[in-house]
Design a protein around this nucleic acid. Structure first.
Lengths: 116, 116
DNA sequence: GCAAAGGTACGACGACTGTCGTACAATCAC
DNA sequence: GTGATTGTACGACAGTCGTCGTACCTTTGC
């Protein structure tokens, strides 16, 4: 009946993005990996398309953190959820930040941390 | 002379800097404030010279986090501890990262931090 | 000697984080 | 319809975080 199929997923507005939240979201190796993967491809990716070393639940959690920080946008399509990097919003609010961090993360030794 | 007030403080080497640790260190508003202040001045600052909304203990803690992440260098002088931003090491390891984050944090001087 | 000033060390506390497992919901394929 | 696929919701857990207060150390100054 009144099943709200495409219920809108909450995202912060561009002006609501906070640097602290963005940096915190990116300070986790798994999430940085997700964002790097998203940045590599130019389109939309499903949550399952990432080879992450965590379970589904944890995966959902990380995607929620990224979404709440305003780094990604999620769109429901069927049973899958399509993720997009909010490049423009990020660039508008924090010019060069994403590219610089991604470049720094490009060095495998730099991202090392404790993902295992 | 018998007193070795030279350098009993541990710092990570340039090659040991981890992006995750740097981002995490910078994701706290108080620490970002410290780094921004340090970046504004070109010399050394004592811990007490910052107008931070926390107690001495918390202040020590934050400085330790920044030091462990490799963002600052601390040098003992008398009863005070002099802090320096590790601009060169940071720039070498993560080019443009510091300036970009500082710029995003709202510090205009950060953009030209390394240019002149 | 004594006291003040600048910081650290330690323990404590509540809050949050990353992780998991299980249970559940929605859609697709048959 | 049934079942598989994709992902969420909830609860639990140990570990970390930011904060504080108190005690302590080192240097400076009297």
């Amino acid at each position: 009946m009144s099943i709200h199929a495409s219920e809108p997923i909450a995202h912060p507005l561009r002006d609501e993005l906070e640097l602290s939240a963005v940096l915190h979201a990116l300070s986790d190796p798994v999430r940085l990996m997700i964002v790097a993967e998203l940045a590599k491809g130019d389109g939309e990716c499903t949550c399952g398309s990432f080879a992450l070393p965590v379970t589904k639940s944890t995966c959902t959690h990380h995607f929620k953190v990224l979404r709440d920080a305003g780094l990604i946008q999620q769109r429901q399509q069927g049973t899958t959820r399509l993720n997009t990097l909010r490049r423009d919003d990020l660039e508008s609010r924090f010019p060069g930040l994403l590219a610089t961090i991604l470049a720094a993360a490009g060095d495998p030794a730099a991202v090392v941390a404790h993902a295992g």
